[in-house]
Design a binder for these strands. Sequence first.
RNA 1: GCCUUGGUGGUGUAGGGGCUAUCAUGCGGGCCUGUCGAGCCCGCGACUCGGGUUCAAAUCCCGGCCAAGGCGCCA
Length: 439
Amino acid sequence: MEYLLRDLRRTHYTGSVTEDVIDEEVTIMGWVHEIRDLGGIIFLLIRDIEGRIQVTAPSKKLPAEILEDIRALRKESVVAIKGKVQSSSKAPNGVEILPSEITVLNMADQPLPMDPTEKVKAEIDTRLNSRFLDLRKTGVSAIFKIRNQMFKSIREYFADNNIIEINTPKLVASATEGGTELFPITYFEREAFLGQSPQLYKQMMMSAGFDKVYEIGQIFRAEEHDTLRHLNEAISIDMEASFMDDTDVKNILNDMMVKLINDVNDNCSNELDILDYKLEVPQGKFQDIDYDEAVDLINARGIEMEYGEDLSREAEKVLGDAMDDFYFLSGWPTEIKPFYVMPCEDQSQKCHAFDLMYKNLELSSGATRIHQYDLLVEQMIAKDLSPESFESYLKAFKYGMPPHAGWGLGADRLNMVLTGVENIRECVLFPRDRHRLTP
RNA sequence: GCCUUGGUGGUGUAGGGGCUAUCAUGCGGGCCUGUCGAGCCCGCGACUCGGGUUCAAAUCCCGGCCAAGGCGCCA
Protein backbone atom coordinates (compact mmCIF):
# COMPACT_ATOMS: atom_id res chain seq x y z
CA MET A 1 0.00 0.00 0.00
CA GLU A 2 1.16 3.45 -0.94
CA TYR A 3 -0.15 6.73 0.38
CA LEU A 4 1.97 9.49 -1.14
CA LEU A 5 1.65 11.17 -4.49
CA ARG A 6 5.43 11.45 -5.04
CA ASP A 7 6.06 11.84 -8.78
CA LEU A 8 2.71 10.36 -9.71
CA ARG A 9 0.54 12.78 -11.72
CA ARG A 10 -2.79 12.50 -13.44
CA THR A 11 -2.56 12.40 -17.22
CA HIS A 12 -6.30 12.31 -17.95
CA TYR A 13 -9.58 13.17 -16.30
CA THR A 14 -12.28 10.53 -16.74
CA GLY A 15 -13.98 12.73 -19.32
CA SER A 16 -11.00 12.55 -21.65
CA VAL A 17 -10.61 8.79 -21.48
CA THR A 18 -12.40 8.24 -24.78
CA GLU A 19 -11.93 6.34 -28.03
CA ASP A 20 -9.33 8.97 -28.96
CA VAL A 21 -6.85 7.51 -26.48
CA ILE A 22 -7.28 3.80 -27.14
CA ASP A 23 -4.03 1.85 -26.57
CA GLU A 24 -2.49 4.80 -24.73
CA GLU A 25 -1.24 4.51 -21.19
CA VAL A 26 -3.11 6.89 -18.86
CA THR A 27 -3.09 7.74 -15.18
CA ILE A 28 -6.41 8.66 -13.63
CA MET A 29 -7.07 9.81 -10.08
CA GLY A 30 -10.29 9.78 -8.16
CA TRP A 31 -12.65 7.99 -5.82
CA VAL A 32 -13.68 4.34 -5.88
CA HIS A 33 -17.35 4.70 -6.73
CA GLU A 34 -18.21 1.01 -7.09
CA ILE A 35 -16.48 -2.36 -6.86
CA ARG A 36 -18.08 -5.30 -8.68
CA ASP A 37 -16.11 -8.45 -7.98
CA LEU A 38 -17.27 -11.31 -10.21
CA GLY A 39 -14.49 -13.65 -9.11
CA GLY A 40 -12.45 -14.04 -12.26
CA ILE A 41 -12.96 -10.42 -13.26
CA ILE A 42 -13.34 -7.27 -11.19
CA PHE A 43 -14.91 -4.02 -12.35
CA LEU A 44 -14.06 -0.77 -10.62
CA LEU A 45 -15.81 2.50 -11.26
CA ILE A 46 -13.54 5.45 -10.62
CA ARG A 47 -15.11 8.88 -10.21
CA ASP A 48 -13.58 12.33 -10.59
CA ILE A 49 -14.96 15.83 -11.16
CA GLU A 50 -15.85 15.01 -14.77
CA GLY A 51 -17.61 11.68 -14.31
CA ARG A 52 -16.76 7.99 -14.10
CA ILE A 53 -14.63 5.49 -15.93
CA GLN A 54 -14.60 1.70 -15.71
CA VAL A 55 -11.40 -0.09 -14.74
CA THR A 56 -11.53 -3.76 -15.70
CA ALA A 57 -9.32 -6.34 -14.02
CA PRO A 58 -9.46 -9.86 -15.52
CA SER A 59 -7.55 -12.24 -13.24
CA LYS A 60 -5.88 -14.20 -15.99
CA LYS A 61 -4.37 -11.17 -17.72
CA LEU A 62 -3.09 -9.33 -14.65
CA PRO A 63 -0.48 -10.06 -11.97
CA ALA A 64 -1.95 -11.42 -8.72
CA GLU A 65 -0.74 -8.37 -6.71
CA ILE A 66 -3.03 -6.04 -8.65
CA LEU A 67 -6.03 -8.25 -7.94
CA GLU A 68 -5.03 -8.33 -4.28
CA ASP A 69 -4.76 -4.55 -4.18
CA ILE A 70 -8.20 -4.21 -5.73
CA ARG A 71 -9.77 -6.67 -3.30
CA ALA A 72 -8.34 -4.66 -0.39
CA LEU A 73 -9.97 -1.43 -1.62
CA ARG A 74 -12.97 0.08 0.13
CA LYS A 75 -15.57 2.26 -1.54
CA GLU A 76 -14.90 6.00 -1.64
CA SER A 77 -11.16 5.52 -1.15
CA VAL A 78 -8.90 7.76 -3.21
CA VAL A 79 -6.74 6.02 -5.78
CA ALA A 80 -4.40 6.64 -8.69
CA ILE A 81 -4.65 4.06 -11.45
CA LYS A 82 -2.21 3.69 -14.28
CA GLY A 83 -3.29 1.53 -17.16
CA LYS A 84 -3.92 1.03 -20.82
CA VAL A 85 -7.11 2.25 -22.44
CA GLN A 86 -8.93 -0.38 -24.43
CA SER A 87 -12.02 -0.38 -26.52
CA SER A 88 -14.90 -2.54 -25.33
CA SER A 89 -18.46 -2.63 -26.52
CA LYS A 90 -19.39 -3.99 -23.09
CA ALA A 91 -17.93 -1.05 -21.14
CA PRO A 92 -20.22 1.84 -20.12
CA ASN A 93 -18.69 4.44 -22.47
CA GLY A 94 -17.22 1.98 -24.97
CA VAL A 95 -13.79 2.26 -23.31
CA GLU A 96 -12.23 0.85 -20.18
CA ILE A 97 -8.86 0.84 -18.49
CA LEU A 98 -6.77 -2.29 -18.00
CA PRO A 99 -4.78 -1.43 -14.85
CA SER A 100 -1.04 -1.93 -14.53
CA GLU A 101 -0.52 -0.06 -11.27
CA ILE A 102 -2.87 0.89 -8.46
CA THR A 103 -1.85 3.35 -5.79
CA VAL A 104 -4.08 3.91 -2.78
CA LEU A 105 -3.71 7.55 -1.85
CA ASN A 106 -6.19 7.35 1.01
CA MET A 107 -8.32 4.46 2.20
CA ALA A 108 -11.88 5.36 3.25
CA ASP A 109 -13.37 4.07 6.50
CA GLN A 110 -16.54 1.99 6.50
CA PRO A 111 -19.44 2.23 6.96
CA LEU A 112 -19.93 5.60 5.28
CA PRO A 113 -22.23 8.08 7.05
CA MET A 114 -24.43 8.14 3.96
CA ASP A 115 -24.60 6.55 0.54
CA PRO A 116 -22.94 8.70 -2.15
CA THR A 117 -24.07 6.40 -4.98
CA GLU A 118 -27.68 7.54 -4.49
CA LYS A 119 -29.06 3.99 -4.18
CA VAL A 120 -30.54 4.80 -0.79
CA LYS A 121 -31.76 8.35 -0.35
CA ALA A 122 -30.89 10.40 2.70
CA GLU A 123 -32.71 13.26 4.41
CA ILE A 124 -31.45 16.81 3.98
CA ASP A 125 -30.28 16.93 7.61
CA THR A 126 -28.21 13.75 7.24
CA ARG A 127 -26.86 15.00 3.94
CA LEU A 128 -25.78 18.36 5.30
CA ASN A 129 -24.11 16.71 8.29
CA SER A 130 -21.87 14.86 5.83
CA ARG A 131 -21.93 17.47 3.11
CA PHE A 132 -18.47 16.56 1.73
CA LEU A 133 -19.88 13.13 0.86
CA ASP A 134 -23.22 14.48 -0.30
CA LEU A 135 -21.39 16.78 -2.72
CA ARG A 136 -19.77 13.77 -4.38
CA LYS A 137 -23.16 12.88 -5.84
CA THR A 138 -23.55 13.93 -9.47
CA GLY A 139 -26.99 15.42 -8.84
CA VAL A 140 -25.62 17.60 -6.07
CA SER A 141 -22.45 18.73 -7.81
CA ALA A 142 -24.54 19.63 -10.89
CA ILE A 143 -26.18 22.40 -8.84
CA PHE A 144 -22.77 23.92 -8.13
CA LYS A 145 -21.56 23.56 -11.70
CA ILE A 146 -24.62 25.56 -12.76
CA ARG A 147 -23.90 28.03 -9.98
CA ASN A 148 -20.39 28.45 -11.35
CA GLN A 149 -21.80 29.21 -14.80
CA MET A 150 -24.26 31.64 -13.20
CA PHE A 151 -21.51 33.75 -11.64
CA LYS A 152 -19.35 33.50 -14.76
CA SER A 153 -22.18 34.86 -16.94
CA ILE A 154 -23.05 37.58 -14.49
CA ARG A 155 -19.45 38.76 -14.29
CA GLU A 156 -19.21 38.65 -18.07
CA TYR A 157 -22.36 40.73 -18.39
CA PHE A 158 -21.11 43.33 -15.95
CA ALA A 159 -17.69 43.45 -17.58
CA ASP A 160 -19.24 43.87 -21.04
CA ASN A 161 -21.24 46.82 -19.74
CA ASN A 162 -18.32 48.54 -18.02
CA ILE A 163 -19.68 47.91 -14.57
CA ILE A 164 -16.85 47.87 -12.04
CA GLU A 165 -16.53 45.12 -9.45
CA ILE A 166 -16.09 46.40 -5.92
CA ASN A 167 -15.70 44.93 -2.44
CA THR A 168 -17.25 46.65 0.55
CA PRO A 169 -16.81 45.91 4.27
CA LYS A 170 -18.82 43.17 5.95
CA LEU A 171 -17.78 44.36 9.42
CA VAL A 172 -19.88 47.43 10.05
CA ALA A 173 -20.32 49.92 12.91
CA SER A 174 -23.96 50.29 13.80
CA ALA A 175 -25.93 52.36 11.39
CA THR A 176 -28.21 50.02 9.50
CA GLU A 177 -30.81 50.57 6.88
CA GLY A 178 -33.35 49.02 9.22
CA GLY A 179 -35.79 46.28 8.44
CA THR A 180 -33.75 43.37 9.63
CA GLU A 181 -31.94 42.05 12.68
CA LEU A 182 -28.15 42.09 12.61
CA PHE A 183 -25.59 39.72 14.08
CA PRO A 184 -23.65 41.56 16.79
CA ILE A 185 -19.93 40.82 17.06
CA THR A 186 -17.04 42.03 19.16
CA TYR A 187 -14.70 44.37 17.28
CA PHE A 188 -11.78 44.84 19.65
CA GLU A 189 -13.32 46.75 22.55
CA ARG A 190 -16.41 47.84 20.62
CA GLU A 191 -19.61 46.25 19.43
CA ALA A 192 -19.97 45.89 15.68
CA PHE A 193 -22.18 43.93 13.31
CA LEU A 194 -22.05 41.71 10.26
CA GLY A 195 -23.31 43.60 7.23
CA GLN A 196 -26.89 43.03 6.09
CA SER A 197 -26.28 44.51 2.65
CA PRO A 198 -23.71 46.60 0.75
CA GLN A 199 -26.45 49.18 0.05
CA LEU A 200 -24.97 52.20 1.78
CA TYR A 201 -21.46 51.55 0.50
CA LYS A 202 -22.41 51.01 -3.12
CA GLN A 203 -24.34 54.31 -2.98
CA MET A 204 -21.28 56.07 -1.61
CA MET A 205 -19.40 54.72 -4.63
CA MET A 206 -21.78 56.76 -6.80
CA SER A 207 -20.58 59.88 -5.03
CA ALA A 208 -17.05 58.59 -5.59
CA GLY A 209 -17.68 58.84 -9.32
CA PHE A 210 -17.34 55.14 -10.12
CA ASP A 211 -20.47 55.50 -12.26
CA LYS A 212 -21.57 51.83 -12.31
CA VAL A 213 -20.51 49.24 -9.77
CA TYR A 214 -21.38 45.75 -8.69
CA GLU A 215 -20.52 43.48 -5.84
CA ILE A 216 -21.02 39.78 -5.27
CA GLY A 217 -20.67 39.09 -1.60
CA GLN A 218 -21.93 37.67 1.65
CA ILE A 219 -24.83 39.26 3.52
CA PHE A 220 -25.91 38.35 7.03
CA ARG A 221 -29.41 38.53 8.52
CA ALA A 222 -30.17 37.51 12.09
CA GLU A 223 -33.82 36.69 11.43
CA GLU A 224 -35.26 33.56 12.99
CA HIS A 225 -36.80 32.44 9.76
CA ASP A 226 -37.27 28.80 9.01
CA THR A 227 -38.35 28.32 5.40
CA LEU A 228 -37.10 26.74 2.20
CA ARG A 229 -36.06 30.12 0.80
CA HIS A 230 -34.29 31.95 3.64
CA LEU A 231 -30.73 31.74 4.95
CA ASN A 232 -28.90 33.65 7.65
CA GLU A 233 -25.84 33.93 5.43
CA ALA A 234 -26.54 34.48 1.75
CA ILE A 235 -24.79 35.76 -1.35
CA SER A 236 -26.10 38.99 -2.77
CA ILE A 237 -25.44 40.30 -6.26
CA ASP A 238 -25.68 44.07 -5.96
CA MET A 239 -25.40 46.73 -8.62
CA GLU A 240 -25.72 50.48 -8.56
CA ALA A 241 -25.53 52.93 -11.48
CA SER A 242 -25.31 56.71 -11.68
CA PHE A 243 -27.40 58.88 -13.99
CA MET A 244 -29.99 56.14 -14.23
CA ASP A 245 -33.43 55.54 -12.75
CA ASP A 246 -35.45 52.47 -11.82
CA THR A 247 -36.50 51.86 -15.44
CA ASP A 248 -32.87 51.81 -16.59
CA VAL A 249 -31.69 49.37 -13.94
CA LYS A 250 -34.71 47.14 -14.52
CA ASN A 251 -33.60 46.87 -18.14
CA ILE A 252 -30.10 45.93 -17.03
CA LEU A 253 -31.49 43.25 -14.74
CA ASN A 254 -33.82 41.98 -17.44
CA ASP A 255 -31.04 41.75 -20.06
CA MET A 256 -28.68 40.09 -17.62
CA MET A 257 -31.24 37.43 -16.72
CA VAL A 258 -31.91 36.59 -20.36
CA LYS A 259 -28.19 36.27 -21.14
CA LEU A 260 -27.63 34.21 -18.02
CA ILE A 261 -30.38 31.72 -18.73
CA ASN A 262 -29.23 31.33 -22.33
CA ASP A 263 -25.67 30.72 -21.11
CA VAL A 264 -26.78 28.09 -18.60
CA ASN A 265 -28.84 26.34 -21.26
CA ASP A 266 -25.92 26.41 -23.71
CA ASN A 267 -23.16 25.37 -21.32
CA CYS A 268 -24.85 23.24 -18.69
CA SER A 269 -27.17 21.01 -20.69
CA ASN A 270 -25.54 17.95 -19.14
CA GLU A 271 -26.12 19.26 -15.59
CA LEU A 272 -29.72 20.23 -16.40
CA ASP A 273 -30.28 16.68 -17.71
CA ILE A 274 -28.83 15.21 -14.53
CA LEU A 275 -31.26 17.38 -12.55
CA ASP A 276 -34.05 16.51 -15.00
CA TYR A 277 -34.88 20.19 -15.27
CA LYS A 278 -35.93 22.23 -18.28
CA LEU A 279 -35.01 25.88 -18.06
CA GLU A 280 -37.33 28.14 -20.01
CA VAL A 281 -35.67 31.15 -21.62
CA PRO A 282 -37.78 34.26 -20.98
CA GLN A 283 -38.61 36.19 -24.14
CA GLY A 284 -37.62 39.86 -24.26
CA LYS A 285 -39.12 42.23 -21.72
CA PHE A 286 -40.50 40.85 -18.48
CA GLN A 287 -44.11 41.51 -17.55
CA ASP A 288 -44.43 44.50 -15.19
CA ILE A 289 -47.33 44.88 -12.80
CA ASP A 290 -48.03 47.90 -10.61
CA TYR A 291 -48.44 47.25 -6.90
CA ASP A 292 -51.99 48.68 -6.94
CA GLU A 293 -53.02 46.38 -9.77
CA ALA A 294 -51.40 43.44 -7.98
CA VAL A 295 -53.41 44.16 -4.82
CA ASP A 296 -56.63 44.24 -6.87
CA LEU A 297 -55.71 41.00 -8.61
CA ILE A 298 -54.88 39.29 -5.31
CA ASN A 299 -58.19 40.41 -3.75
CA ALA A 300 -60.08 39.36 -6.87
CA ARG A 301 -58.62 35.88 -6.42
CA GLY A 302 -60.04 35.61 -2.93
CA ILE A 303 -56.99 36.49 -0.83
CA GLU A 304 -57.70 39.52 1.33
CA MET A 305 -55.01 42.17 1.23
CA GLU A 306 -54.98 45.88 2.13
CA TYR A 307 -53.23 48.57 0.08
CA GLY A 308 -49.99 49.48 1.81
CA GLU A 309 -49.20 45.99 3.10
CA ASP A 310 -46.40 43.73 2.03
CA LEU A 311 -47.51 40.52 0.30
CA SER A 312 -48.31 37.53 2.48
CA ARG A 313 -47.10 34.14 1.35
CA GLU A 314 -50.59 33.32 0.11
CA ALA A 315 -50.71 36.59 -1.85
CA GLU A 316 -47.34 35.86 -3.45
CA LYS A 317 -48.62 32.45 -4.50
CA VAL A 318 -51.79 33.68 -6.23
CA LEU A 319 -49.89 36.49 -7.89
CA GLY A 320 -47.22 34.06 -9.10
CA ASP A 321 -49.91 31.83 -10.59
CA ALA A 322 -51.45 34.76 -12.46
CA MET A 323 -48.26 36.11 -14.01
CA ASP A 324 -45.51 34.97 -16.37
CA ASP A 325 -42.62 33.12 -14.73
CA PHE A 326 -40.49 36.28 -14.48
CA TYR A 327 -42.19 39.59 -13.73
CA PHE A 328 -41.54 42.93 -12.10
CA LEU A 329 -43.75 44.17 -9.28
CA SER A 330 -43.40 47.96 -9.30
CA GLY A 331 -44.70 51.14 -7.67
CA TRP A 332 -44.49 49.97 -4.06
CA PRO A 333 -45.84 52.00 -1.14
CA THR A 334 -43.10 54.28 0.25
CA GLU A 335 -44.11 53.24 3.75
CA ILE A 336 -42.88 49.65 3.44
CA LYS A 337 -39.68 50.31 1.49
CA PRO A 338 -36.38 51.52 2.97
CA PHE A 339 -35.63 55.20 3.62
CA TYR A 340 -33.30 55.60 0.64
CA VAL A 341 -35.95 54.80 -1.98
CA MET A 342 -37.12 57.75 -4.11
CA PRO A 343 -40.82 58.63 -3.61
CA CYS A 344 -42.86 59.42 -6.73
CA GLU A 345 -43.03 63.15 -7.58
CA ASP A 346 -46.81 63.23 -8.06
CA GLN A 347 -47.83 60.91 -5.22
CA SER A 348 -45.29 60.52 -2.45
CA GLN A 349 -47.07 57.57 -0.84
CA LYS A 350 -45.76 55.50 -3.75
CA CYS A 351 -42.11 55.10 -4.68
CA HIS A 352 -39.77 54.13 -7.52
CA ALA A 353 -39.13 50.65 -6.15
CA PHE A 354 -39.55 47.29 -7.83
CA ASP A 355 -39.11 43.61 -7.08
CA LEU A 356 -38.19 40.98 -9.62
CA MET A 357 -40.25 37.87 -9.01
CA TYR A 358 -39.97 34.34 -10.34
CA LYS A 359 -43.40 32.79 -9.82
CA ASN A 360 -43.94 33.32 -6.09
CA LEU A 361 -40.28 33.82 -5.20
CA GLU A 362 -38.79 37.27 -4.74
CA LEU A 363 -35.42 37.32 -6.49
CA SER A 364 -34.44 40.94 -6.48
CA SER A 365 -35.38 44.36 -5.07
CA GLY A 366 -34.34 47.62 -6.61
CA ALA A 367 -35.18 51.29 -6.87
CA THR A 368 -34.27 54.76 -7.86
CA ARG A 369 -32.43 56.11 -4.80
CA ILE A 370 -32.81 59.49 -3.16
CA HIS A 371 -29.75 61.56 -4.08
CA GLN A 372 -30.74 64.81 -2.34
CA TYR A 373 -29.33 65.24 1.17
CA ASP A 374 -32.34 67.07 2.62
CA LEU A 375 -34.91 64.61 1.31
CA LEU A 376 -32.82 61.69 2.53
CA VAL A 377 -32.65 63.12 6.06
CA GLU A 378 -36.39 63.79 5.95
CA GLN A 379 -37.11 60.18 4.98
CA MET A 380 -34.82 58.86 7.70
CA ILE A 381 -36.66 60.87 10.33
CA ALA A 382 -39.99 59.67 8.92
CA LYS A 383 -38.77 56.08 9.46
CA ASP A 384 -37.58 56.79 13.02
CA LEU A 385 -33.92 56.49 12.10
CA SER A 386 -31.39 58.91 13.52
CA PRO A 387 -29.42 60.87 10.90
CA GLU A 388 -26.53 61.23 13.38
CA SER A 389 -25.80 57.51 13.24
CA PHE A 390 -25.64 57.68 9.44
CA GLU A 391 -23.19 60.57 9.40
CA SER A 392 -20.48 58.88 7.34
CA TYR A 393 -23.05 57.81 4.76
CA LEU A 394 -24.92 61.12 4.61
CA LYS A 395 -21.68 63.01 4.12
CA ALA A 396 -21.39 61.46 0.67
CA PHE A 397 -24.63 63.21 -0.32
CA LYS A 398 -23.48 66.72 0.58
CA TYR A 399 -20.67 67.18 -1.91
CA GLY A 400 -21.98 66.04 -5.27
CA MET A 401 -24.07 62.84 -5.33
CA PRO A 402 -25.43 62.04 -8.78
CA PRO A 403 -28.93 60.66 -9.34
CA HIS A 404 -28.66 56.88 -9.21
CA ALA A 405 -30.51 53.59 -9.02
CA GLY A 406 -29.69 49.96 -8.40
CA TRP A 407 -30.77 46.56 -7.21
CA GLY A 408 -29.79 43.59 -5.11
CA LEU A 409 -30.34 40.06 -6.36
CA GLY A 410 -30.30 36.94 -4.19
CA ALA A 411 -27.74 34.61 -5.75
CA ASP A 412 -28.85 31.51 -3.88
CA ARG A 413 -32.48 32.06 -4.85
CA LEU A 414 -31.42 32.63 -8.44
CA ASN A 415 -29.52 29.35 -8.24
CA MET A 416 -32.80 27.66 -7.18
CA VAL A 417 -34.54 29.05 -10.24
CA LEU A 418 -31.73 27.84 -12.52
CA THR A 419 -31.75 24.31 -11.12
CA GLY A 420 -35.38 23.78 -10.10
CA VAL A 421 -34.50 22.80 -6.55
CA GLU A 422 -37.03 23.68 -3.87
CA ASN A 423 -34.82 24.04 -0.82
CA ILE A 424 -32.35 26.95 -0.84
CA ARG A 425 -29.97 24.90 1.33
CA GLU A 426 -29.39 22.68 -1.72
CA CYS A 427 -27.79 25.67 -3.45
CA VAL A 428 -25.28 26.47 -0.72
CA LEU A 429 -22.24 24.32 0.02
CA PHE A 430 -22.44 24.78 3.77
CA PRO A 431 -25.69 26.58 4.56
CA ARG A 432 -26.25 28.70 7.63
CA ASP A 433 -29.79 28.69 8.93
CA ARG A 434 -31.57 29.20 12.24
CA HIS A 435 -30.37 25.86 13.57
CA ARG A 436 -27.23 25.09 11.66
CA LEU A 437 -23.76 26.51 12.22
CA THR A 438 -21.76 23.40 11.24
CA PRO A 439 -20.19 22.05 9.15
C1' G B 1 -41.64 32.25 17.66
C1' C B 2 -46.34 29.47 16.31
C1' C B 3 -48.89 25.14 13.96
C1' U B 4 -48.68 20.11 11.95
C1' U B 5 -46.17 15.58 11.47
C1' G B 6 -42.37 12.62 12.89
C1' G B 7 -37.70 10.28 15.58
C1' U B 8 -36.69 2.07 14.69
C1' G B 9 -29.33 -0.97 12.49
C1' G B 10 -24.31 3.43 9.08
C1' U B 11 -28.42 5.10 5.43
C1' G B 12 -33.63 4.83 3.90
C1' U B 13 -37.88 2.19 5.87
C1' A B 14 -42.19 -1.66 7.78
C1' G B 15 -44.63 -2.56 12.29
C1' G B 16 -47.89 0.37 16.24
C1' G B 17 -49.51 -3.04 24.04
C1' G B 18 -46.81 -9.51 24.59
C1' C B 19 -42.92 -11.13 17.75
C1' U B 20 -36.49 -14.07 17.79
C1' A B 21 -38.71 -6.27 15.48
C1' U B 22 -39.81 -6.19 8.50
C1' C B 23 -37.50 -4.95 4.01
C1' A B 24 -33.78 -2.56 1.03
C1' U B 25 -28.99 -0.70 0.94
C1' G B 26 -24.44 -1.11 3.55
C1' C B 27 -20.63 -3.81 6.16
C1' G B 28 -17.86 -8.88 7.01
C1' G B 29 -17.26 -13.81 4.78
C1' G B 30 -18.12 -17.42 0.63
C1' C B 31 -19.33 -18.65 -4.84
C1' C B 32 -18.98 -16.65 -9.67
C1' U B 33 -14.67 -14.07 -16.31
C1' G B 34 -18.52 -8.92 -18.81
C1' U B 35 -20.68 -6.40 -14.53
C1' C B 36 -23.15 -1.63 -15.49
C1' G B 37 -28.78 -0.36 -9.21
C1' A B 38 -24.55 -7.30 -10.99
C1' G B 39 -26.48 -12.04 -9.01
C1' C B 40 -26.70 -16.10 -5.32
C1' C B 41 -25.55 -18.08 -0.12
C1' C B 42 -24.13 -17.14 5.20
C1' G B 43 -23.40 -13.57 8.92
C1' C B 44 -23.39 -8.35 11.47
C1' G B 45 -26.03 -4.23 12.94
C1' A B 46 -31.57 -0.52 15.52
C1' C B 47 -36.71 0.94 18.70
C1' U B 48 -34.44 9.65 20.62
C1' C B 49 -34.11 10.80 26.11
C1' G B 50 -36.68 11.26 31.05
C1' G B 51 -41.02 10.28 33.68
C1' G B 52 -45.95 7.82 33.90
C1' U B 53 -50.01 3.99 32.88
C1' U B 54 -49.86 -1.53 32.64
C1' C B 55 -48.77 -8.18 34.71
C1' A B 56 -46.31 -6.43 30.08
C1' A B 57 -44.31 -0.26 26.38
C1' A B 58 -40.62 0.44 20.37
C1' U B 59 -46.10 0.75 20.46
C1' C B 60 -50.55 4.43 24.99
C1' C B 61 -50.04 9.34 28.10
C1' C B 62 -46.92 13.75 29.78
C1' G B 63 -42.40 16.48 29.27
C1' G B 64 -37.50 17.44 27.05
C1' C B 65 -34.25 17.26 22.89
C1' C B 66 -33.86 16.81 17.62
C1' A B 67 -35.82 16.88 12.60
C1' A B 68 -39.12 17.66 8.33
C1' G B 69 -43.07 20.62 6.23
C1' G B 70 -46.26 25.02 6.68
C1' C B 71 -46.75 30.03 8.62
C1' G B 72 -44.74 34.38 10.77
C1' C B 73 -40.48 37.48 10.75
C1' C B 74 -37.50 38.84 6.51
C1' A B 75 -34.96 39.48 1.23
